[in-house]
Design a binder for these strands. Structure first.
Lengths: 174, 174
DNA sequence: ACGGTCGATGTCAGTTACTGACATCACAGT
DNA sequence: ACTGTGATGTCAGTAACTGACATCGACCGT
């Protein structure tokens, strides 16, 4: 991350990273599938935690509530160190390939949540849409949170986004 | 696309594509920024059309309606040749890098629509959320349309997805 | 203590996506 | 005919990855 931050992602070679870490290039690629994955390492574990949170929501809770429980985990993990998150975000925002990777990671999280919803008996278009809606709300809240100067409250922003999403979709069908 | 379909995306080299097209490798890279871009060529023009459609929606129309007008264009362009779309989709679905690319293309379309909404006076969290919600509805509808065997109606599926999205977010706030 | 297995690392050679610099060539306008 | 201009070819180079094999240290059973 230091190298990516200083010289930029694309001006940093794997050889440099490996040298800084005191290993060979080959070893780097045994730890990370590719150069981008460095910034998305914990996403597997994160997925597990989110899945557990969604699965652990009360049976009576509507789908969007279960998804919100999953997002709480996401927020807890990503939102704890704000300056770290901002540096990371700046690096990702500055590079198209990293943005792609981030999008697919979030999409994976959403589809994992949708899968859990299905095991809870939610039928298909609904499950995916609830998960996607939650993710959209998160994404927008996340942008604001990392972008704004003052100490905004991330869970609060997510709640507002969900409310806004309801308002926006609620006005009129096609 | 023939090569990608037959041998798979990652087993196809740029040299092969160039040879098939009767040009050199270098020329290939002058037409396409990278190997994936082949499958996403028209997305610039598509964006323009969608932007125009959103901008052209009645001033009185709520944001989600303007977005729906943009999606109609997307549907018209992508949905006209169904078998072509399905082959293309199969290729993309089979490869992670292509899925990444598709996600960022859709995200670009969404953010372009959000930008237009802003020029129409829609305030910020609302604009992004309306665009993202619309895109989520499209994505889910698109999955169903390309996946299902019978001749489903894509605009119809999108309308259903938007309705479902409203239902799903509408049940309860946090 | 000793041999053996195993996991992590190093080494090396190779492929392939992509890029910059320069040459060539056809064609349009004057 | 002259000249630019845009598209292509040629060539050399970089850097991300990958497969195959060697090494080495820790740990395990006897």
């Amino acid at each position: 991350m230091e190298l990516y931050g200083d010289r930029g992602f694309e001006n940093t070679t794997v050889a440099e990273i490996a040298e800084r870490a005191g290993v060979t290039e080959r070893t780097f690629f045994r730890h990370f599938a590719d150069k981008r994955e460095v910034l998305f390492g914990g996403s597997g574990a994160l997925k597990e935690q989110m899945v557990a949170a969604v699965a652990g929501a009360p049976v009576s809770a509507p789908p969007i509530e279960a998804v919100a429980a999953g997002l709480d985990v996401l927020v807890a993990v990503l939102g704890e160190r704000r300056d770290f998150s901002r540096r990371r975000r700046a690096i990702i925002a500055a590079n198209a390939e990293l943005r792609e990777r981030e999008l697919i990671k979030l999409a994976l999280l959403a589809s994992a949540m949708a899968a859990v919803l299905r095991t809870r008996g939610v039928a298909e278009p609904t499950a995916s849409l609830a998960a996607e809606a939650g993710m959209a709300a998160f994404r927008v809240a996340w942008e604001r949170w990392t972008g704004e100067a003052d100490e905004a409250n991330l869970p609060q922003l997510i709640r507002e986004s969900l409310d806004e999403l309801r308002a926006v979709t609620g006005s009129g069908g096609s």
